[in-house]
């Protein structure tokens, strides 16, 4: 079963999840809602056959949750505990946003994204730049790996322990390749008619379907519950 969502639904999901992440869950009920909210993108990942990342996220989130609830109290001391507390807190707090963002970035094709932004009348400048940012994180990672490999071949490990050198050796080549890739990218984009004066047509036809409406309702409910509990239940 493959669930295909409208990019606008996905953006809405990101929006809601980021808003909810800012509010801390105080009661068991809110925790339940929060966990439910985290499970939805994981299920969606599974539906799109991304089992590996879905299971990894599930595992990470579950471990952090269990640790947070069982063995961490406010007076836990020591460096190791501080680390553990810090990481678990970060994961529990931000995992929903992380997983949703991951899901959206991995399953949205750039053309879908651009045409949905067009439909929402977002200015071209923002759309194109944002599409480039989304596309560019994996590229940076690849380039960085390539640079590390090159440095290993050359026998440079940590820049001789010099922090400034360490940064320089990595950053400068990275910038070089990024600038070049940018030039190629814009050449390719212009060839495909981006930035022309005519309104572009799109090969993908975006329509809301049942699953889109269901998810929008579900996430709106989550936000409503959180706001209600946070501000009106005192």
């Amino acid at each position: 079963m493959k669930i295909k969502l409208d990019p606008r639904t996905k953006l809405y999901m990101i929006f809601i999840v980021s808003a909810v992440v800012m509010m801390s869950a105080t009661t068991p009920f809110l925790w339940a809602v929060r966990i439910l909210m985290t499970v939805i993108p994981i299920i969606l990942l599974m539906c799109n056959k991304r089992y590996a990342s879905a299971i990894r996220f599930l595992f990470l989130y579950a471990v952090a949750l269990v640790l947070t609830f069982t063995c961490i109290t406010e007076d836990s001391k020591g460096i190791f505990m501080a680390f553990l507390v810090g990481y678990c807190a970060i994961i529990v707090q931000f995992a929903p946003a992380m997983i949703t963002a991951w899901y959206v970035v991995k399953t949205t094709k750039i053309d879908e994204f651009v045409s949905s932004m067009q439909k929402m009348h977002v200015p071209d400048g923002i759309t194109i730049s944002l599409a480039v940012v989304m596309r560019f994180f994996p590229t940076i990672k690849e380039e960085y790996a390539a640079i590390s490999d090159a440095m290993k071949m050359r026998g440079i490990r940590f820049g001789g322990g010099n922090a400034v050198k360490m940064m320089e050796f990595r950053m400068i080549p990275l910038l070089f390749s990024c600038v070049n890739i940018g030039d190629e990218l814009s050449a390719a984009a212009v060839t495909r008619g981006l930035g022309g004066k005519v309104k572009r047509s799109s090969i993908v036809d975006l329509k809301f379907k049942v699953q889109d409406y269901l998810l929008i309702i579900a996430f709106t409910a989550v936000l409503a519950v959180f706001i209600y509990n946070k501000y009106f239940m005192k």
């Binding site: 599409a131 480039v132 940012v133 560019f136 600038v179 940018g182 984009a189």
Partner: peptide, 12 residues
């Protein structure tokens, strides 16, 4: 378009 792409890259 070129400018938008530059902005995107450096933001990333």
């Amino acid at each position: 378009v070129k400018d938008f792409i530059t902005v995107g890259i450096f933001t990333a």
